[in-house]
Amino acid sequence: MDFTFLGESFLRLIGGVPLTLQLAFSSIALGLCLAILLALMMQSWFRPLGWLADGFVFVFRGTPLLVQIFLIYYGLGQFRPALDEMGIWWFFRSPYYCALLALTLNTAAYGAEIVRGGLQSVPAGQIEAARAFGMSGLTLYRRIVAPIALRQALPAYGNEVILMIKATSLVSTITLMEVTGLAHKLISETFRSFEVFFVAGAIYLAINFAVTRLIELAEHRIAPDLAQANRPAEVH
């Protein structure tokens, strides 16, 4: 193996890591907020809100993220005059914001299902007991529902984080040069696909390893009893 080339590739590809991480973590943070909102809408007594959330989840989970990215970036780009009038063109003008929007909406759809699962796992007895103590509304959510739901949802959410880090590779199709985009450029310049794959793959595995460890640590902190049961990874 040509170690000089591997070294050079590594130096070039590592330049894409900040963008990869930035996109992954901003979309996960924003997506989580939206996911909680969607999960609450699904449980709302006002059914139209639930239908709206269900429809959102259906569309974004039922179609490939890549199509969503193209639709938002190239598709909406066609409507520049209208978006200009609404004063939001500055947002859609930037490939970064378009990518962030697509990633956020996509992870929110998957996240909503995870959060909903977490909320449903809260035993009715716990809520009844809290009510008997006079807790209600926000206090009930903050002190009883949220902690239990979080404990349940965290492992699945850890998976979602890894999937999002992988998903950021798709933004290279709309000119954003993150790790995979740089790898593609390097391959088309040098035609050395194996070495480049090797280096880029190693970078992603290292990121995933670090993230997995962090999540395990978090699990251990908030739910030492649950963290013991090593759940197999879920797929969606």
């Binding site: 950021t168 590779s169 995979t180 194996f194 794959f197 880029a200 793959g201 595995l205």
Partner: peptide
Amino acid sequence: TTVFRGVPDLLVIYLFYFG
């Protein structure tokens, strides 16, 4: 399992396509 679940699918497609 670890490698192909951890590496972006697009990267794998590039590997197969170019290599």
